[in-house]
Design a protein around this nucleic acid. Sequence first.
DNA 1: ATAATTCTAGAAAATTATTCTAGTCAAAAC
DNA 2: GTTTTGACTAGAATAATTTTCTAGAATTAT
Lengths: 192, 192
Amino acid sequence: MARSSRKQEILQAALGCFTEYGVEATTIEMIRDRSGASIGSLYHHFGNRERIIAALYLEGIGEYAARLEAGLIETLDAEACVRLFVSSYIDWVVANPDWARFVLHNRGRVEAGEMGDRLREVNQAHGERVGAILRRHRESGAFRRMPSDCFIAVVIGPCHDMARNWLAGRSRTALADVRDLLADIAWASVRA
Amino acid sequence: MARSSRKQEILQAALGCFTEYGVEATTIEMIRDRSGASIGSLYHHFGNRERIIAALYLEGIGEYAARLEAGLIETLDAEACVRLFVSSYIDWVVANPDWARFVLHNRGRVEAGEMGDRLREVNQAHGERVGAILRRHRESGAFRRMPSDCFIAVVIGPCHDMARNWLAGRSRTALADVRDLLADIAWASVRA
DNA sequence: ATAATTCTAGAAAATTATTCTAGTCAAAAC
DNA sequence: GTTTTGACTAGAATAATTTTCTAGAATTAT
């Protein structure tokens, strides 16, 4: 067995349980069962239940953030930049629905817990890198003037809501089908 | 002691604990302590921990939904209607921050749990009443054509994100100060 | 080969949630 | 005015779940 594969097996088992039964309702025993690991192994790798949740969360947003930043670096045009925000988010959700659902519903839990500081660090670092890229466009006058908090919320907020509904099976519209519409609206909302 | 005041005391105590320590970390014992109730009383009123969470959630969205619907009934103009969505949401969050934070972060938990069906019923009924009001405007051509799922997400999504950030103390901008800006953007995003 | 380290195992202990029995209290029925 | 009924409270007992702990297997480094 490859090194630390057990750790990944546990995380995958946990995500499976969380998706199927909800985070609250899954017990350590269920994760142990599905992963084939022992209690000892589980606690060796993660220390406690909460850190399993936090690890899954951090890995999820990490992958998405990396993708977004990689794309942004190559994108010089303000409009393309805004559209990339929308489309890379939608693409990630469509490609990783279980992970996306978990991440969308558990930020508060992780932030309130012992890994909260760690998460805030990671988010802040990511936010600053993205912010630096956006600042160029803002200063060049490509965007309507508004607080930067608002800018992010306006661009990605509709995607979050739409994804949440789609992931919960509440949406009659396929998420992938509204990618371009949401990108249009996002750009129209923030252009100068 | 007025009838069923104990029940409300327990709910308030629970919300206090959830705000202070997070939902995961608060135990029945902590709620018992803060409310002054006994274990027996707690279980008499709610049956289990999850139903305390669900009751708090349902009461929270209920109050907000009632306010919104009351406003919508008196609003005949399409633009005013969209602005009302934004402003009544922001006003509610500013007036009830703890409750708003709890509701924003625990929808998934309640939906996944035993009260999930009940919540979906309530949400669907609310959605249909609101949808009926919006349909008039849509059919009169006041709105840009888009799936109704998208419409809601575009109007209220930025508010959700902004509120989430503000409630978590991540926002430098006061939420009340961007109410009109968000309403402007919402209307610009959905007008024909 | 052997020492060091990481990892796995599962029983034992601790913590937390829930059930259960025994009541109190206030109002309705008689 | 007492009895009865049902809602409510109490806390001990029980059950479920998480966490700790000790021992040993597997892997890596020396």
